[in-house]
Design a protein around this nucleic acid. Sequence first.
DNA 1: GCGCATCTTGAGAGCGTTCTCAAGACTTGT
DNA 2: ACAAGTCTTGAGAACGCTCTCAAGATGCGC
Lengths: 355, 355
Amino acid sequence: MARVRKTVTIRDVAEDAGVSLQTVSRVVNGGPNVRPQVRDKVRASIEKLGYVPSLAAQRMSGSRSYIILAINDRERTLEDWRERRGTDWVDQMLLGGILTCSQHGYRMMVELVDTHSDHVERELGAALSALQPDGVILTPPHSENRLITDLLAERRIPFARIGSDAPGPGIPLTMGDSGAAHLATTHLAGLGHTRIAMIAGPSQYSLSGWRIEGWKRALAEAGLPYEGLLEVGDFGYESGTRAARALLDRNPDLTAIIASSDQMALAALEVARERGLDVPRDLSLISFDNTPIVRFTQPPLTAIDQPIAETVSRAVEQLIARESKGEGDSVIEVAAALVERASTAPARVLAADRV
Amino acid sequence: MARVRKTVTIRDVAEDAGVSLQTVSRVVNGGPNVRPQVRDKVRASIEKLGYVPSLAAQRMSGSRSYIILAINDRERTLEDWRERRGTDWVDQMLLGGILTCSQHGYRMMVELVDTHSDHVERELGAALSALQPDGVILTPPHSENRLITDLLAERRIPFARIGSDAPGPGIPLTMGDSGAAHLATTHLAGLGHTRIAMIAGPSQYSLSGWRIEGWKRALAEAGLPYEGLLEVGDFGYESGTRAARALLDRNPDLTAIIASSDQMALAALEVARERGLDVPRDLSLISFDNTPIVRFTQPPLTAIDQPIAETVSRAVEQLIARESKGEGDSVIEVAAALVERASTAPARVLAADRV
DNA sequence: GCGCATCTTGAGAGCGTTCTCAAGACTTGT
DNA sequence: ACAAGTCTTGAGAACGCTCTCAAGATGCGC
């Protein structure tokens, strides 16, 4: 009885509206030369039959694929998930990306690629061939991987590099790391802190350098020193522990730390606790990322909110807009914000008891 | 000079290998009747040219689309992300799904659908028409939404219902909620607790009922009461606060709480703190979900780990395997595990001082 | 060694869309 | 009112693949 509902094609619409197949196509794609009267008739038929163009067929006919591919680091993602579970990059990327894509009639797909593998080109190449995306979004640490950017450039696929401001092909977007570090540092200086340390990320991430730069700039503006106040971690918890201990050992008068990831900030919080330092009374703490974790620690952490979703969203818009337009664009910077919570407080004026 | 690299098609391979187009197709799809010698020759050409079939073309030619669509709740996801940021469902789904999909040559796409909207059918219908996925994975609370399951059944698209054990079309998968609650309860009883409360989830989620059932069953087996020990929340923090307060008010001798979400457990932890109860000395706490948060609280929470990634992975396998096979399958249950951390301890034998 | 079944291969159509190009219907300027 | 446009519409090819079906090659039993 109830026959399997046949897929509604453009042909059905054309027939129903009494026009040619091509005219329907024009209406669907907002083509220019269609009489309003015809347009309405076609639209009515589309509505009535519930017609939706097949992505596959659209792609086949040589036009766009309406797919944006987002590349994430498999190794880091998987490891984080299984061991440390300290990422919500993927979540945020998806939310920012999917919504913006769907607003423009596009779809987002996620591909996990292992940077350190020597199959990168193969893996990515296969994905590109299979999907033929209209655009690709690169996230750190892929954003400046020459193997990847060269491959994309060679294939003439527009792409966005998040967390990269280098020249070259691809649209560069940054999340205002320098400004964010500057903001955090200035905030602490404004609270009266004079010894403000930074636990930075690994140097292969450009953003690590930007954050250090912003921090130093703010310190200089405030007339504060930075000697002995920098440690480098790898974003992970363990490295945060090591860095925080080293900083406190070296600087007995330290009253504030900026950590380049939530994980490292949590480690610093624990180190403070093990040394009997109260946060924020004895030590102020600001972290980067603002993942869900930091709202529920004791105390909740003041953090720099990385606008990942917003940035991905912007990247999608750029990719869709410039479809094969020229390169050499200026860097797009999405500003990060400081979310104040309870881990920052004025420096104790009478800190003499600790020195 | 460097011409735009033309896409390698099946025709190029056929030509290079000196066989017909059809033969290449057979080799690619593991077709049965090809001489080993020819097969090898074709494989060599594929390798040499770096040929990868176009998903779109495959789909067009009436075969599979090699796409699995995962449906998530937009409202909950977005709200969680912006306000509470307490979810990592999407992360885990993706990780479990993408990996398993790619192992079978499939791709996973994520669609965010708003259950409460009355456009559900429209939204979902459009996505199905555009993507024509080979399978769909439904997550709570969509898994038992009749509008959605009916739509999928009508279109003859195989789908999996995660967190549903109801009969009807679609492959039902559960994450062992009853068993998990039983496990948690038994664990606490084994530590000597005699008043074990539960903060359940909302009743429109089937899994809420299953957890209550497992809890009651374990209590009955241990000869323990459950009267007055049940409160219902909505998975969110606020509701956890209310529930924990109510439980502690009503039961001065309460020594253990099982919360149906990490958020609610965090709330209970805070309530304990505000009442001067030490966790785990005075109150043991077990949560459900095991999101990243609970490793970094004070103390870290003992939790039931929901095997989301594993379950999605199983769902993908089932969908790919049974491609249009019959229905009426038995429920697939992926067991959840208890991760012991520092929020559970033996009940104090001399609890008389509190009573 | 012949007829029949089976294995291997290829030719051609078709999937749903957009592209190119041409034809007909209207304008407009003179 | 006529030529030269400009709008509007449609016909047909093309995209890359798999499906169906038929033809040739090979094997088997008697």
